[in-house]
């Protein structure tokens, strides 16, 4: 069993508990144990784009420092936004001497100084680079054969260029994972189109419109469900279907599943009953279909 230092982030302890639990179940099956960072704090959710205020970067950097304190050099995340924020903060720390100086000074009270050496590892990279899709495919076998999943990358797994888990405009990792699970990956043109992100708090109707487009595109591709790896995307694409359905009588609900939930099903791990309650669009039918296959 390989231990991975794990950074959950805020939402995996709240609205996305099923993401965390399903990840733990699936990864255990693959020989990984998630060991939660003893002390962690919110990463800030978004990487601060204003370059004249360095203090916003302290939050993610402190988590990277905790990793070093616990003797690790890799920090594993599930949430795309945490991944993005942590990774970008570290790049800034290593590549911008001026800001590096500022944040170091601001962290004077820490027990050790941060050395910039914590790598952020996302689930998709772990499965591709450390488990390997061939290995995974061999382990899973037929898996979700007959199921078509629409891989939804969203923004923060891919952008900015060079920091994401794969080629920004032409990613493959999510599709490859879906195929390794035995399912078919939909050629889904809206896979990297923004869901509306935080606008969901202020302008839920705009987000619902995005959701309608993205879900509509997945439906046109013949997908059984949309697979995601970000709790905010999940909320927007799933919960906001309620508004989309209210505004458009022809809108049909589509299940939105975390990729880890799919992975559990592919590995023959039971889809736990409490997970279902977190979903808005009904998942029973698709889960039954997936369980039957696996």
């Amino acid at each position: 069993m390989t231990k991975l230092l794990y950074y959950p982030g805020c939402t995996l302890k709240a609205d996305a508990q099923h993401f965390e639990e399903s990840a733990m179940c699936a990864l255990k099956e693959l020989g990984f144990e998630l060991q939660e960072l003893e002390r962690w704090n919110c990463c800030g959710t978004v990487f601060s784009l204003a370059t004249d205020n360095t203090m916003f970067h302290l939050a993610p950097l402190r988590n990277l420092l905790r990793t070093r304190e616990e003797g690790g050099d890799k920090l594993f995340t599930l949430c795309s936004m945490c991944y993005n924020t942590l990774k970008r903060a570290n790049k800034l720390f290593n590549e911008d001497p001026e800001k590096n100086d500022k944040v170091r000074k601001a962290m004077y009270e820490e027990a050790i100084a941060y050395d910039g050496k914590t790598q952020t590892l996302h689930l998709l990279s772990l499965l591709r680079d450390e488990v390997g899709f061939d290995t995974l495919k061999n382990k899973i076998g037929k898996g979700l054969n007959g199921i078509k999943l629409a891989p939804y990358y969203g923004c923060m797994l891919l952008r900015p260029d060079g920091l994401g888990v794969d080629n920004m405009e032409h990613p493959r990792v999510f599709e490859d994972l879906i195929r390794a699970m035995g399912a078919e990956a939909a050629d889904f043109p809206f896979r990297a189109e923004c869901c509306g992100s935080y606008q969901t708090a202020q302008q839920p109707e705009i987000v619902a419109e995005r959701t309608r487009l993205i879900i509509g595109s997945a439906r046109k591709c013949g997908a059984d469900a949309v697979a995601v790896s970000c709790p905010l995307c999940a909320f927007n694409l799933d919960q906001r279907q309620a508004i989309a359905a209210r505004l458009h009588s022809d809108f049909e609900l589509m299940p939105v599943l975390y990729i880890t939930e799919c992975l559990c099903l592919a590995l023959g791990i039971e889809f736990k009953e409490p997970w279902k309650a977190f979903h808005y669009a009904p998942v029973d039918a698709v889960i039954r279909k997936m369980e039957k296959k696996a």
Partner: peptide, 15 residues
Amino acid sequence: KELPPIAIISAYRKI
């Protein structure tokens, strides 16, 4: 109550 923490925090950070 409805929104996940990730939405609330990012919205506050941005707008």
